[in-house]
Design a protein around this nucleic acid. Structure first.
Lengths: 341, 341
DNA sequence: TGAGTAATTTTACGCGCGTAAATTTTTTAT
DNA sequence: ATAAAAAATTTACGCGCGTAAAATTACTCA
């Protein structure tokens, strides 16, 4: 396998003109089968890949796509990123993953960097409340962007996410049907807009059942949700703030903290005999299966969200960068019954 | 803020020659302070960033660095990636994160992609056993590479990681000192070479104490360590394979699975009265703090590994791509005592 | 076999910036 | 003030490929 310096040389070796080779690399289907075969045969003999920078410099549209998440160390977002990354690759794109790590100024920097990557499109899960809306809006005007996970009204060409009402309705209905109605356990100032939707959904669901909603809001900022959940729970135990024996957490990471607090205080969690508390939650965190007890939760359809996000972005790109109307797609959750409730 | 198309135009606006502006963007310190001020003043008035692709095309060395990990959804690697990413940015580089998701062919593809990014250097945590050694070696010949987390003999310009003997010595010593000696709980065919080092360290530590090593090897392949640990533990309980009341897990993710199994079987874990089992482990997984009970473990010095990895890579880059001798740096672990042992 | 069409080649230019060399200007040192 | 050094400018070229237009070749089907 001899190395080849550039497309010129490779074209010469394979006996095909450079523009045709160029065309092949942009779309192998766009050349005659016999030519394609000759190129691919040459590709086996010589080691050559077109220079990424030269390719993209003089092109309006690259095959790059950006994937931006608020916090990559959060397994829920890692899972989202992974699923979307796979689909993008399958679609023939080159995904680049970025994480704002909870910091709005980093989010803006990422968008700036992305701009210079000339991406064909961007899949963006914004920070939410903390996001610099103006900057994001400006970015969306320049680059075809599909929002996922967290919606910001009117921003981007489309939104794909999970239906928070579906999440909460399922957990509330289940809990009400099988025992005491739940109180709702959340952060007072959630960073993520989904949290607000979930609270609203909880209140609505309880009222639908003719029950009094009970929202417990705990203190804490940042993205250390487990610790926030834990401290909030310990304080709630001290204050005897829990009205009943059933807690519905806004998300699994808070629930993990809560379970940890329960364990420390000797509160047995579950739906069986001798259990002091039932705990349920939302997201189906990759480790929800392994908490003690395992966590009953409403699960994202990660694959569906990824599939639809990427598919929508491709449509936007095909349509030249913008869609007639901004579609919002919400996928329902599915309830995962485990031991905690 | 008027937008500017290229450096030519920006140079004209700011009244400075283009090559000087180019120099500024490559290193703001390299131009006269007065010039720098004028450029930065113009930068406030006009919106301009040099075209990434044009910048890097005709340059031997870009400011890109690659960060490659075996599995980004694994919080331990997410944490490593995060720490290294921060340091790279601080050092003025542009990090790109990639994950092989456990698949060797993907790892090779990532290296191929990276090559075309012309990175100044790469920080690589290889898959380990499954890695295509020949391909990685070839890559390391072309691109300055520092290995981290998992060592592969002789590959890359340097290795930075954690000292597995330190991990295991601390946990074994502690467990032996405070109760029964531990058996060692691991996968029969671990993907990661650190696992082998840990087993060896365990055996050596036990022998040093004049004790008989007991290694329990569980079945399972892939990267779903929690589930593998859980199933392995359930089987071990059935087979009464645990020799004593103390288990030392090769890593925290296995331990999380083990704890889950213990909980299901009603085995109380901890060091107090009425506890059937003590469990300790290695890594200090971000959620080890929140398992039930919280997990006693030996912690990576994530920050030190990140700091040294990046620093070493910078040295390699400065030295023109290769070091006289391949340094291996191992950071000691520190024991984190929690409730599980 | 001949048109008609699709694919390919040729030709030519440009993208935006890096970079080297020679020249001029500015700063620093004497 | 003058020489020396440093910085900036001018000039000129190249990187590797995209892409458009025109000319040529290969294929399709009657």
């Amino acid at each position: 396998m001899k190395k080849i310096r550039n497309m010129e040389e490779f074209a010469a070796r394979s006996g095909i003109s450079r523009p045709t080779v160029s065309k092949y690399f942009n779309d192998p289907e766009s050349v005659r089968p016999s030519t394609r075969e000759r190129i691919e045969k040459a590709l086996e003999r010589y080691e050559f890949r077109p220079n990424l920078f030269a390719m993209n410099q003089n092109r309006k549209l690259t095959k790059n796509v950006g994937i931006v998440v608020p916090f990559l160390s959060d397994p829920v977002f890692a899972e989202h990123a992974r699923a979307i990354e796979q689909r993008s690759i399958q679609a023939g794109y080159r995904p680049f993953i970025f994480s704002a790590y909870g910091r709005p100024e980093v989010e803006v920097e990422i968008l700036d960097s992305l701009r210079s990557l000339k991406p064909a499109g961007v899949l963006l899960a914004p920070l939410g409340r903390a996001s610099d809306k103006a900057e994001i809006e400006k970015f969306c005007r320049d680059v075809p962007t599909v929002l996922f996970d967290s919606n910001i009204d009117g921003m981007g060409e489309a939104f794909v996410g999970s239906d928070n009402f579906s999440f909460v309705n399922q957990t509330v209905d289940y809990l009400v049907r099988t025992g005491e109605p739940p109180c709702f356990f959340e952060m007072r100032r959630p960073a993520n807009p989904n949290a607000n939707k979930r609270r609203a959904a909880y209140i609505a669901a309880m009222q639908r059942h003719g029950l009094e909603p009970q929202v417990i809001q705990i203190e804490g900022d940042g993205w250390g949700f487990e610790e926030i959940g834990r401290q909030g729970a310990l304080r709630a135990f001290e204050d005897r703030a829990l009205p009943g024996n059933t807690v519905l957490c806004s998300n699994d990471r808070l629930a993990i903290g809560l379970l940890s607090a329960c364990y420390d205080r000797g509160l047995r969690v579950g739906r069986g005999e001798g259990c002091a508390l039932r705990v349920a939650s939302h997201d189906d965190h990759p480790f929800a299966r392994f908490t003690c007890p395992s966590l009953t939760t409403a699960a994202h359809d990660y694959e569906a969200v990824a599939e639809r996000s990427v598919q929508t972005l491709l449509e936007v790109i095909d349509a030249g960068g913008s869609l007639a109307d901004r579609k919002e797609t919400l996928f329902p959750a599915h309830l995962v019954l485990r031991a905690s409730a």
